[in-house]
């Protein structure tokens, strides 16, 4: 990241693969930072010209406005299938990745991601887990925590009526077609760096034709959670990370 420019040392700059634009997201939302991390990974790997993004439906579907790579908008939940079609259309060349939120991936699109992985696709999925539906105004998602109040679980999510928080990174790791699965969060520099490393590794598994790469970002949704930005970060660290611990869940170089 650091370089010499006009006698001054630049330690932080806009990634090459990011557009110069203003934020579309709510105060305290981390989606634009996730887009930035992916842009940095794309820059550092030199894959901007080969990367094609596929957006799901949800707030994450706005990240493309920051990203200077080809993009296709998929239907809600269908990004892994659409990405598969793109990959075949490009004769299995190209580095195709999906952005999907928890409604998109873990609810309406759960079958699509499992089938794509099980088909042995060489794709990369960046999963935005903010424990609810942001775009539509804070409804319950499969990732919503037990007891968490949302507009569709006004008394708090309880298992008897609404089931359990779904652990996507663990589920992905359990599948044979997955070469890499990790859960990361953007709290503090160390985590930021390991998040970028995870994204790069997930891309690399695709480039090396090993298998599916999956990175789950646990991230904030201040308006959806009814919190201000600092409080949402605290709640993420306290409640979210307790349910969704960070770490690398799978990293293999060969799938038998």
């Amino acid at each position: 990241m650091s370089e010499q420019k006009a006698g001054k040392k630049v330690i932080y700059h806009k990634p090459e693969s990011a557009f110069e634009t203003s934020s579309l997201f709510c105060a305290g939302c981390q989606h634009s930072i996730i887009a930035r991390v992916v842009c940095e990974a794309i820059d550092e790997m030199g894959i901007q010209g080969d990367a094609v993004g596929v957006s799901g439906v949800g707030c994450h579907g706005m990240c493309h406005v920051y990203m200077d790579v080809d993009f296709v908008f998929a239907l809600h939940g269908r990004a892994p299938g659409t990405a598969t079609g793109i990959k075949r259309g490009l004769s299995n060349k190209g580095i195709v990745f999906t952005f999907q939120g928890d409604g998109d991936l873990a609810a309406i699109g759960l079958g699509d991601i499992l089938s794509a992985v099980n088909r042995g696709e060489k794709l990369t999925t960046i999963f935005f887990n903010n424990a609810g539906y942001g775009t539509t105004g804070g409804q319950m998602a499969p990732t919503t925590l037990q007891g968490q109040v949302t507009t569709t679980s006004p008394e708090g999510r309880d298992a008897a009526s609404h089931g359990y928080p779904v652990h996507m990174a663990e589920m992905m790791a359990s599948m044979r077609g997955v070469a890499y699965s990790a859960r990361v969060a953007l709290i503090g520099l160390k985590n930021f760096m390991s998040a970028k490393k995870a994204v790069k590794t997930a891309f690399q598994k695709q480039i090396d034709n090993v298998g599916y790469g999956f990175v789950e970002f646990v991230c904030t949704c201040p308006p959806g959670w009814g919190m201000n930005p600092p409080k949402s970060i605290q709640w993420l660290e306290k409640a979210m990370l307790e349910e969704y611990p960070l770490g690398e869940l799978k990293n293999v170089d060969i799938i038998e």
Binding site: V54, V72, A74, L75, R78, G81, T82, A83, T84, G85, I86, K87, R88, G89, L90, S91, N92, G111, D112, S115, R119
Partner: peptide
């Protein structure tokens, strides 16, 4: 060429969409 047996017709059409976005005949 490329053939994919999908898990549903829903996925068939969404793969077709992605593939069509690359400009090849599909």
């Amino acid at each position: 060429g490329y053939f994919v047996q999908t898990e549903s017709e829903c996925t068939s059409i969404n793969m077709l969409y992605g593939c069509a976005c690359t400009g090849v005949r599909c």
